[in-house]
């Protein structure tokens, strides 16, 4: 990551999420994702041992990794980094070889019925004109935050400075850009 460049990331506040699935509905309709396929998903996780149980609800999607293995293994350059480090698939270049699906440690990708490989794009068609991703826009509890973590004054940077957060499986070595607040 170069200093001074935009680096988009998503910060997800797991303490606010109620599991309403609005983000999923927004994603399916905004990006015309045909069922039963999905670009994002909800995880309901029960942690701890009885009787000290607590529930974690997470809204998950592509992690838009800084060192995305899916971009490295793509033989045609269809998987590429776009503005702000967003990992995007260009359906015009995709052959459907599925190398990127095998390379993704988060299982975020799937084969779209039209043949190309599809996944979350951080709604790049919206973010490139200054809007927020559809899921972030509709979240009724404001648990999803989107912005540039290279900009110290951005909402996401402030949240990461003031709150305890973690990435999912950072040991996979891909530098994921979804940050979960606890």
């Amino acid at each position: 990551m170069k200093q001074g460049e935009k680096r988009y990331a998503m910060v997800i506040d797991t303490t606010l999420c109620v599991g309403c699935k609005d983000c999923l509905m927004a994603c399916q309709t905004e990006n015309n994702v045909p069922l039963p396929f999905f670009r994002e998903w909800l995880v309901f996780l029960t942690k701890g041992e009885f009787p000290n149980l607590h529930r974690v609800i997470r809204s998950e999607r592509c992690h838009h990794c800084d060192r995305a293995p899916c971009v490295g293994v793509c033989p045609t350059g269809a998987s590429h980094f776009d503005e702000g480090g967003i990992v995007v698939v260009d359906p015009k270049k995709c052959t459907g070889c599925k190398a990127c699906i095998a390379a993704c440690p988060y299982n975020a990708r799937f084969v779209h019925p039209e043949g190309y490989v599809d996944k979350c794009s951080f709604c790049i068609h919206r973010t490139s004109v200054g809007l927020k991703p559809a899921c972030v826009d509709v979240c009724p509890t404001h648990c999803l935050h989107f912005g540039d973590i290279n900009d110290p004054s951005s909402e996401v940077s402030k949240l990461l400075k003031s709150r305890r957060w973690e990435n999912l499986i950072p040991e996979a070595g891909t530098k994921p850009q979804l940050y979960f607040l606890y």
Binding site: T76, A78, C94, T95, K98, E114, Y116
Partner: peptide
């Protein structure tokens, strides 16, 4: 046969 987007095979 394995490619899911066969018409783009030339992209390789």
């Amino acid at each position: 046969l394995d490619l899911s987007y066969k018409v783009h095979v030339w992209r390789f």
